[in-house]
């Protein structure tokens, strides 16, 4: 068990995600591998959820491709700090592409939670919100209490916003949403009415 650090977040990750995804409507949600996938899945499986179980570092770019292809829909990427760090260059690519309908929420526990809770860079030296701002994201935020999470809920559905949510490092019971990628892909496309391409 790793020691608690002074800059650890305090928010309950499941509670935070349940606020962000309350009444999701037709929000298109892409989840990064590991706990972000479980946190979204445990709220109830939806056809408009695309869960990653691999492809680490790719979640934001999947969100971008989806946002470009579906400009009338809102796309929300929910991922962890480790996954976002691996795809940090994509913060530059997404900002440069200027998709107005894409937002990213990073559940930041400053840990690699799936692999033994090793400290990640966000608990050492890296500020992901500042990285995103430096890459050209004009709307960025960090939530440290539930009131701030509540305020993010509507912003993430209206703005091209990059938000960090400082969650506590404790582990939650694992929840297993579908991990057959071909099934989830086809179901997602059908939900959007894509029958042939």
């Amino acid at each position: 068990m790793s020691e608690t650090k002074r800059n650890d977040g305090t928010l309950d990750r499941r509670e935070a995600v349940s606020v962000l995804l309350r009444d999701p409507g037709d929000l298109l949600v892409v989840t990064g591998l590991g706990a972000a996938t479980y946190d979204v899945g445990v709220l109830g499986d939806r056809d408009q959820n695309f869960y990653l179980w691999g492809a680490m570092g790719g979640t934001a770019m999947i969100g971008l491709g989806l946002a470009l292809a579906q400009p009338k829909k809102r796309v929300l990427v929910v991922t962890g700090d480790g996954e976002m760090l691996m795809g940090m260059g994509s913060l530059a690519s997404v900002a440069a592409a200027k998709a107005p309908n894409l937002a990213i929420a990073v559940l930041d526990n400053a840990r690699f939670g799936e692999t033994g809770s090793q400290h990640s860079h966000t608990g050492l030296t890296t500020d992901l919100e500042a990285v995103a701002a430096a890459c050209g994201w004009t709307a960025t935020a960090t939530a440290r209490d539930m009131a701030e999470v509540e305020a993010l809920r509507s912003r993430l559905r209206a703005e091209p916003l990059f938000a960090v949510i400082r969650i506590a490092p404790d582990e939650k019971p694992r929840f297993i949403p579908p991990r057959d990628g071909a099934f989830v892909t086809e179901r997602f496309r059908r939900a959007l009415g894509i029958v042939e391409n």
Partner: peptide, 26 residues
Amino acid sequence: IDTVVLTTEEEGIALSAGAWLGGKRS
């Protein structure tokens, strides 16, 4: 055409996957 400059090639695979999920070819 939406044309996206990437910082590294693996981003392009994820971009293509997202576009396909949304019904576009890349």
